[in-house]
Structures are given as structure tokens and as C-alpha cells.
Design a protein around this nucleic acid. Sequence first.
DNA 1: TCCTGGCACTCAATGACCGCGAGTGCCAAT
DNA 2: ATTGGCACTCGCGGTCATTGAGTGCCAGGA
Lengths: 370, 370
Amino acid sequence: MIRPLQEREVVDVREEPRPGETWPGDSRGEDARLDRRRLEVLRAIVQDYVSTQEPVGSKALVERHNLGVSPATIRNDMAALEEDGYIHQPHTSAGRVPTDKGYRLFVDRLSSVKPLSSAERNAIHAFLGGAVDLDDVVYRTVRLLAQITRQVAVVQYPSLSRSAVRHVELVAITPSRVMLVLITDTGRVEQRFVETIPLGESTLADLRARLNALIVGHRLADVPGRVEDFAEQFVHEDRPAVDALVAALLEVIVEQREERVVLGGTANLARFRQDFPDTIGPVLEALEEQMVLLKLLGETTGPSTLTVRIGHETGYEGLSSTSVVTSGYGRDGDTVAQLGVLGPTRMDYPGTMGAVSAVARYVGRILDQA
Amino acid sequence: MIRPLQEREVVDVREEPRPGETWPGDSRGEDARLDRRRLEVLRAIVQDYVSTQEPVGSKALVERHNLGVSPATIRNDMAALEEDGYIHQPHTSAGRVPTDKGYRLFVDRLSSVKPLSSAERNAIHAFLGGAVDLDDVVYRTVRLLAQITRQVAVVQYPSLSRSAVRHVELVAITPSRVMLVLITDTGRVEQRFVETIPLGESTLADLRARLNALIVGHRLADVPGRVEDFAEQFVHEDRPAVDALVAALLEVIVEQREERVVLGGTANLARFRQDFPDTIGPVLEALEEQMVLLKLLGETTGPSTLTVRIGHETGYEGLSSTSVVTSGYGRDGDTVAQLGVLGPTRMDYPGTMGAVSAVARYVGRILDQA
DNA sequence: TCCTGGCACTCAATGACCGCGAGTGCCAAT
DNA sequence: ATTGGCACTCGCGGTCATTGAGTGCCAGGA
């Protein structure tokens, strides 16, 4: 019997937790019942359900996977799994469907991240290789992620506060109007207009030189501390202008800390509208809220650290039948932002996790080159 | 009998076209059959269908609007309207539904733009008043439009090619790397890094001054012509660097001419997913294509010139049950970009047109102030 | 000539009914 | 502990009759 899925996704099903780990479950008594075969059954249920989109019964299970036992035995295991809350019956005479808790166990212990196919690797190279600037990198990344996972992709711009100042430029637009441009080492450029009292060109040049000397190469988070006493270097009459410029600089830094998020692949939602016909509205609503997206991307984690949020774990009612897979990405092993995808809870976790992880790594490498 | 809709939307139904106008329709013979009452019937059908979302029959029609005739008479009119292609029966024993052609006639001759309520006006002021920069204006506008029309909103960034140069800045990041910043009078800022041979600071200052003198105040579209022979002003050894910078400047202008478009209110699609359950996928797909959105916004028209595209008129198969209402907006009566909304063909045209028109006017005014 | 009431007709939608079959739980036997 | 057998449940899909909104047509009347 051919079992391509099995062979690709073999992971060890450990009999005991590793030191310092505990198995999911409420008590040790429950764990005891999670013997090897039951876990195997749960994995089979998840795999079948993900690929067929239909509740899976005991008979079909033993046919598709050679478990070496009879359907009746599987039924007993299923009953136990259901009692422990890992699977669920939509109605009395139907097959079983994994619960959020079941997916959680699957992700934690029953699956491994699936490496990308070489075709997918090539796609990543081809797609991201041609990026010219930061906007382009982010834009291409979101399209790429949406395309290879066929789900909704979310990419956060590199956070200003984690990156460092590469250059500050002051440009006199009119005698009393100055444009302040901040360039970070992640390639981000922010600008803002400042109204000041008129400043001489030489004063402005001096100001620019001193300001750059003071903060170039430092983290944005450190800038406020460094410019605190900056104005005192200047003669009294220039102080108001300097103060205005410094204030604008701080504003840019603080204000842009509310990170921008880019979304793509929304059309992929339509593909599984059959799955949750009532919930597509709330999902679209959630996706429109920048705040929600940022929360979903979550706290900054280490680079290439995969995080999976399943169903209710997302923390939003409207997203209770979706899951989110995210990863940090960054340069030099330092995480500057998060990216990820959102799809139905019945997603292909190994494949999605592999794709997110690979893209995150590659984007980090691109930022390193720049 | 109370007829609030009627009273709000009274427009004259002319018996004859004004000089220089022709009535819709294939021939004069067809027009002759479009007498006063039939047009009234068509209007009533559109209004009822838009508000109830259900095919409207002759009996319900005479009850809701006091047309002064019997259902049987209406039926005759309906038969005529159907023969001319303005309405259509989903099935033999059902009411009538307007066709695209019917909506077109309604928009052209049977409705007027509905002025906003004062509450809506206040919302516009409150929402757009607080915008701080161009990004903010665009972002707020798209949210506002989506909110008051409860449909999908699309706003195009002010086109680079129609605006003028306010300032060009050259910043040496490293000796051989220069950042070029282009600022337009619509507040847009574009930047790009250029690799050159090392340039002295004084050379760069000279270059900056001459370049600004040459193009500040001129339209972006005119810039290519003006900088054509620019490099000849410089000594031979600086030529390659100047050429590189000029090339980058032209690239920024050309490349950014592919205008950016911002989308909002996608979640509103879910509200009428009942209407076209099969077509929400294609619609989402279309909305993800920048090219499609730009085509929908269409050729630049005059400011505050409303354009309505109904169903197949959008030119996209996937959008055959949606309509698009757009308007140009700009400063000083000069159109710099388009904005609009997309909704089901069964939308409230007068209200949507009023909202789009009002927002476009107000955004134009905001740009004038800036 | 245009309008109207009447009438026969059509057909989508609704709900009751029913058989099929996938799937289950339980139990006695191994 | 596992298994085959068996009775039971219940959603799904098909058929069928009913209903009612809506139509087209026609003959009579202003």
C-alpha cells in the first residue's frame, strides 16, 4: 500500500515526554491513556480530515492507513480521544473531526515541519531575488507567501524601534520649512515637514552634521536619550528651531512604532468559504483591523521561531475557525518583525509551517545583504 | 400615503431629450415607447429592488408607489420594458429585476445625486480634518468612504506625473552612495539609492542646486525633457555620476507612474454575499490586482466628475454583478487622481454617488490647504 | 386607444415522507 | 486487549403534493 503522506511526514511518537516537558492534557491519568496507537489514530484523523475536508470514520481510517487493527479497535480509541476532547462528532452518526485541542497536540507532537520542494525553493529565489527596495521586499514577500501557502499572508514592516539610524537629512524647502528624513539600516525611510523660525543654510548644515554624529549607528530606541540635551549645544536664538526639529524626530520615531502591516491573498479565503460559510464576514472584518493583525503576529519572537495559534487561541471570536502560523524574521539573527499566514483550522500545518519558516529565513538573508 | 423615497429623489422625467442629447436606446422607435409612466415604473422597480433585494411584482409595485393605475396596466408596461431589455425575469412566475441596461437608464435619467445628510457631512469633516500627511489623508479617506457607503472603497494616490516638483534632495550616505529624494507639491515623497563614483561634497551641492533650479516647479511629465542635456553642464570626469543620478530620477518618475491604490472595506463584501454567493471569489481576486483596480478607477476625468460603471461595463467577467462609482479629485480644480467605491449592481446609486462626490470634493479641498 | 378585471397557467419554494448508507456503541467471543 | 457481529442513529438526497406569487392574455368598458 502506498502511503506518500506517511513517508514524508514521519516523526517519532515518543512514549514519554522529554525532561522538562509535560504532555498536553489535564492530568497524568489522562496522559496514561494516550498510548502510541491512539496518537497514531489522532494523527491519521487530522491528516485525512485536512485532505478530504470531511469527517473521517473508523472504516475509512483503517483502509487509508495500515494501522494493523480492526475498525472496532479504532472506534474504542476514538471514543477515548473524544472523551479527552481531542476529536468531536458533528452529529451522532458521523465521523470524527479534530478539535482545536486535537490540532494543538498534532502540531506539538505528531508532526514535523515539512521541508519545501525544490520547485518551491526556486520560486522563493526567483520571487524575492529581484526586489529593489524595502517596499518591494515586503510586497513581494506577502504575494509569495499567499501564493505558496494558498492562504492569507501577513507581513509586518521591519520595526523602526529595533533598527538603527543610518542617516538623518534636513532639507530646507522654504526658509521656514524643513523636511526631516530619517533613514534606517533596514532600508526604511520616513519623512516629515517641520515649521521653524528661519535658519541660515550654514546653521542647518551644522545642525545636520552634529545630529548625524550624535545618533547615526544607534538604535532608534536609544535616540530619545541621546538627543535629550542636544539643543544646549546651540546659541540661544537657534534653540527654538532645534527644539522643533528634535521634537519632530522623536515624533517620527514614536509614531512609526505602531508598525505597518501588509496583507495579501485575501481571495484565498473564498476557497474555503464552503468550510465556514457564516464566518467569512467576521474574518474579513478582523483582517481589516491593523490592531488585530498586529496582535495576531504577536510579540516579537526569535528569528525563525515558529508560532502556531489554533482556533480560539487567536483570541478573537471571529477567528475561531482559523489558525495563524507566524515566524519572526530579521538580520544577523536579530528579529526585526514578524510574518505569517492565516487559514482555516483545518490547514496543512506541516506544509504551512515549512513555507512560513523558509520564507522568514530567506527574507532575513535578503535584509542582511542590503 | 407616505412616500419618503419619492419625495427625496424627485427629478424631472422629461418627455423629450434636451437639445444635443439623445435618449438611451437603439432607435427612435424604441424611445417612443418609453413614455412617462413606463419610466416611472422602471424607477419604482429599481428602488424597490434595491431596498428589498427581491424580484418585484406588479401588485407590490402599485401598493408601494401610488401609480394611479391597476396591476394589469403595470404588467403591460413591464412586458414592454422587458422587451427593450431594461428588466428581466429570473424565472417565468417571478417578479422583475433590473438589468444592467435598466440601471444605466436609471442612473442617467431617473435619479439625481442624493445630497448627504448633515450627520454624514459632519463625519467627513471629523474624519478627514485630523489628517497629518498624505499617507494619512489617503488612509482616512478610504476608511471613510467604506464606512459611509458600506461598500468597498478604492483611493488612488495623487499621480506623480500630474503633480509638480517641489524639491529634489541629494544625500551622500557613503562616498559612493547617494540617496535621491523627490518631493512633489502633492506631498508625495519618493526616494531611491544610487551607486555612483565618489563625488566631492561641493560637487554634490553644485549638482543639487543646478538640478533644483532646472526642474523645481515643473510638472513631472516635463522633467524628462528638461534634464535631457543636463549632464553636459559638467566637467567630463563627473559625467558618469551625473548620468547615474539623472537616470535614477527618471526611473523614480516613470516607475511611480504606475500609481498606487489603497483598498478598504473589503469586509462589506460579506454583507451581500447572499446576493452573489458564487462570485465573491472572483471579486476578491479582482480586488487584489492593482492593474484591475487602476483600470476600474479609469482614465483621469475632471474633478468631481462622477463616473458610473455598471455590471459588464466594468469590463471584467468576475465583476459582472458589481458596479463601480468613481470621481476625480484634486487641487485647484485640477484632477490628480481618482477615488471611488465598488458594490453590487443592486446598490443605492443616488446615495453612493452623493457620498463619492462629496468625499472627492472634500479631499480636493484638503490638498489645497496643504 | 388605452385601461381594467378576470382567468387560466407556470413554476420556485416549502414541507412531509422515505429509503439509503455511513458510522456508531455495545457485547459476547477469542 | 482485540475483534466480529449487530442493532441503532441520523444526515442526506430524492420524490411528491401543495401553495402562492406572479404572469400573459383577452374581452369588455371609458
